[in-house]
Structures are given as C-alpha cells and as structure tokens.
C-alpha cells in the first residue's frame, strides 16, 4: 500500500489547509488512487496475474444449470441431498441472500426473482486463509485461493471465517454420492473442507474454467484483472459491477452485473 494513500492523505490535509480542494476534484483523485490500488497493490503490478470473474446476471438464463453441472462433474463434487451435508462449489442463491445489504423492497423484479450464481470469491484478503491453522488453504500468486486436501485437518475454522458460505465440509465419504466420476480429478476423503478452485487444473493447461466453457449465454467472463487490455478489465471499465459484501474488506475477485 500504502504510499499512494499516505500521499493522498497528505494532499488532502494540505488542500483543506488552504481551503482549495473542491469536493469534485478530491473525489476524482480518490477514485483514481483506489482504482489503481485495487489492481496494483499487494505485489500485483500491471501485467501480473490476478484471476477474476464477471457474472452477467442479465444474460444468465433462469433454470439453467449448465455451469453448475459442468463444474460439479469436472471436480467430482458429490450430490448429497439435504441442506445439512450438501457440498457445492457453484450454485444459485436468491438475490436477497447473496447480496443482503444491497437488497431492498423495491429491487428490480427480475433481480429479486432470478437466483444469483454464487461461488468462492477468491478474495484478495481471504479470511479463510488468515484463519487456517495449517496453510491447507492458501492464496496463490495469481490470486486463486486454493485448498490442499492433503493437509486439511478438518477443523472448519475456514467455514466460520468465510463470510460468503462458499465452503463445504465432507461430513462422510463422498464417493458413493458421485454419480459419474471424472477420472482426471481426484475425489475427496471424509473430514476435509472443499470449495471452488477457479479450475486451477484447467488454467494450467490453458483452458478456461469449466463453468465459463459450459455457459451458452456468455454470462461468465473470466480473465486476468492484472492485464489492462483483458476482456474482463474492459467489461469492468464499461459496465457497473458489484462485489458481494465489500464492506468486509475481503475484496472479492468475482463481480456481478445486474
């Protein structure tokens, strides 16, 4: 950080001292600094990688589960019925549940009605990584919040820490609940936590995440937030987007268009 902000505060102080800073100019300045901070800080220089995703809910088809099915097959996610022990990497959630602080009684009808696609946000400041006692959950240099299933001790501290409910625990052996096993990806043992990995195994081969590939409506844009010329950056520059629970300081890498 924090040089930019410090400079900004300094300038703010000087400006108010002389009574010259018009609100507009400061606002402009602040926006620029924050924007730059978002993409440059934390060792993330321009042209380094921070994977991110924009989900365009205006294009997402109601009732379609293509992305969910593709992801859950790709990663051998068991299909356990009932809320108690279900495992999910990507799923649909009512708008008021996914965006509790942004939902209000007069929300646009289709926004209110159509469930939102939710998954791990691969936060820039992930609380799950902060609380994990064994580094079984960690953040890669490219921003992906990964899980090492070999190391997880199943304490579920990360599940208490995640403010998005993006993590699932294997309360029992998941194998019997996988309808069709994908031989290219391991299953899990009972007793470990799991979640979306932004298809790290596909990215390694230069493939797009399974959910994006499966979507026929092009409602998912995946790309490098660190590359100013990437499609995802272009979308973010031109459209109004939201992150979930920004007030918690986690800085999600998943953005939404409504």
């Amino acid at each position: 950080m924090r040089k930019d902000r410090r400079n900004f505060l300094k300038k703010l102080g000087v400006a108010s001292l002389f009574g010259i800073g018009s609100a507009g100019a400061l606002d402009q300045y602040f926006k620029k600094t924050v924007y730059a901070e978002l993409f440059k800080e934390d060792g993330l220089k321009e042209n380094t990688t921070r994977w991110g995703m924009v989900i365009d809910m205006t294009k997402c088809e109601e009732g379609c589960t293509a992305c969910i099915d593709a992801c859950h097959f790709q990663h051998n996610v068991p299909e356990i019925s009932g809320k108690k022990e279900e495992v999910k990497w990507i799923w649909k959630e009512a708008y008021k549940n996914a965006f509790p602080s942004k939902s209000h009684p007069f929300t646009k009808e289709e926004t209110q009605k159509d469930p939102v696609l939710t998954l791990c946000n691969h936060c820039k400041n992930p609380p799950c990584v902060r609380v994990c006692p064994t580094k079984a959950t960690f953040k890669r240099e490219d921003g992906i919040v990964m899980m090492d299933f070999h190391r997880c001790i199943g304490c579920r501290f990360c599940m208490a820490g995640c403010p998005y409910g993006s993590r699932s625990f294997n309360f029992k052996d998941p194998r019997p609940f996988i309808k069709k096993i994908n031989p290219d990806f391991p299953t899990r043992e009972k007793g470990v936590v799991e979640k979306c990995n932004f298809c790290a195994e596909r990215l390694a081969k230069g493939q797009a995440p399974a959910c994006q590939s499966a979507c026929n409506n092009r409602s998912i844009v995946f790309g490098n937030l660190g590359d100013p010329n990437s499609e995802i950056r272009r979308v973010l520059m031109t459209q109004n987007t939201l992150q979930r629970k920004t007030e918690l300081g986690t800085d999600p890498s998943v953005f939404y268009i409504f």
Binding site: T134, C152, I153, G154, C155, N170, E189, V192
Partner: peptide, 15 residues
C-alpha cells in the same frame, strides 16, 4: 476435527 490423524500438521506447518 474431521481429520484427527493429521493433528500434528498444526505443529509441522506452524501458521
């Protein structure tokens, strides 16, 4: 713990 046999990971990978 879900994986009690790995309890020593807390010491092996101090965090």
């Amino acid at each position: 713990m879900g994986k009690p046999m790995r309890v020593l990971n807390v010491i092996l990978y101090p965090t």
